[in-house]
Amino acid sequence: MAWVFLALAIASEVLATVSLKLSDGFSKLVPSIIVVVGYVVAFFLLSQALSRGLDLAIAYGMWAAAGVALVAVIGAGFLGESLSWVQAGGIVLVIGGVLALELGATH
Rank of each mutant, 00 (worst) to 15 (best):
M1K: 08
A2Y: 06
W3V: 06
W3A: 06
V4R: 02
V4P: 02
V4F: 12
A9D: 02
A9H: 01
V14M: 04
V14H: 04
S19K: 09
L22K: 14
S23Q: 06
S23V: 09
D24W: 10
G25D: 12
F26C: 07
S27R: 14
K28A: 15
L29H: 14
V30T: 14
P31W: 11
V36Y: 00
V37C: 13
V37E: 08
V37D: 08
V40L: 12
V41Y: 05
L45N: 05
A49N: 08
L50K: 10
L50F: 06
S51D: 15
G53K: 08
G53M: 10
L54Y: 07
D55A: 14
L56Y: 10
A57N: 08
A59K: 03
M62F: 11
M62V: 15
A66K: 08
A69V: 14
L70P: 02
A72E: 00
A72S: 08
A72L: 03
G75R: 11
A76P: 07
G77N: 08
F78N: 00
L79I: 11
S82M: 03
S82R: 06
S84C: 03
S84D: 04
S84Y: 03
V86L: 09
A88F: 02
G90M: 01
V92G: 01
L93I: 10
L93T: 02
G96R: 08
L101A: 03
E102V: 15
G104Q: 08
T106H: 12
